[in-house]
Simulated scan of single mutants.
Amino acid sequence: MIGVGLIGYGLSGSAFHAPYVHVTAGLELRAVVSRDPAKVRVNRPDMRVVPDVTALLAKPDIDLVIVASPDALHAEHAVAALGSGRHVLVDKPFATSLADAERMAAAAAASGTLLTAFHNRRWDADFLTLQDLLASGRLGRIVSLESRFDRWRPTPATTWKEARSGGSWYDLGPHLIDQALVLFGRPLGITADLASLRNAAPAPDYFHAVLRYPDKRVVLHSTKLAAAHDLRFSVHGTDGSWIKHGIDPQEAAVLAGKLPGGAGWGHDPQDGTLVLPGAAPAPLANRAGDYRLFWQALARAIRGEGPNPVPPADALAVIELLDAGLRSSAHRVEVLL
Rank of each mutant, 00 (worst) to 15 (best):
G306A: 12
V65Y: 03
N120T: 11
S69I: 07
L321S: 08
G306Y: 04
P156R: 06
S147L: 11
P174K: 12
S196D: 00
D91A: 15
L11F: 13
L115M: 08
F294T: 05
G264Y: 12
G266Q: 05
D63C: 10
A263P: 10
L128G: 11
A18M: 05
E162L: 07
D215P: 01
G266S: 08
A107L: 10
L29W: 02
A125F: 13
I142R: 01
K216G: 04
L336I: 14
S69R: 11
S97I: 04
A117Y: 02
I142Q: 03
I243K: 08
H17C: 04
K244N: 10
T159W: 09
A108P: 04
G266M: 06
A200E: 15
R48S: 10
L64R: 00
L181Q: 13
R212Y: 09
H87V: 03
A201T: 12
A135S: 10
P45G: 11
G10R: 09
R48L: 15
W265Y: 11
V67E: 02
A180C: 09
P311Q: 05
A108H: 00
A180R: 06
A68G: 14
P204M: 05
V50D: 07
V333A: 11
D205T: 06
V23F: 01
Q296L: 09
L89F: 13
I319A: 00
D230H: 10
L82Q: 02
V67F: 05
L133K: 09
D132M: 00
G5F: 03
A315G: 13
R121D: 12
L64S: 08
M47Y: 12
L188E: 14
A203I: 07
S14V: 09
E305N: 04
V65S: 08
I190V: 15
A201K: 03
A72H: 15
T113Y: 01
L293D: 12
L64A: 04
N286W: 04
G304R: 03
A117W: 01
A157T: 10
L172C: 15
R327I: 05
V254C: 09
A317E: 06
Y170C: 15
D239A: 15
F207K: 04
K224L: 13
V67T: 02
G173L: 12
Q179E: 11
R198W: 07
F184N: 09
L172W: 12
A107M: 02
A78H: 09
E28V: 08
A299L: 00
V275L: 15
L316T: 01
S136N: 01
A18G: 07
L188Q: 14
L29S: 00
T223V: 00
H87W: 01
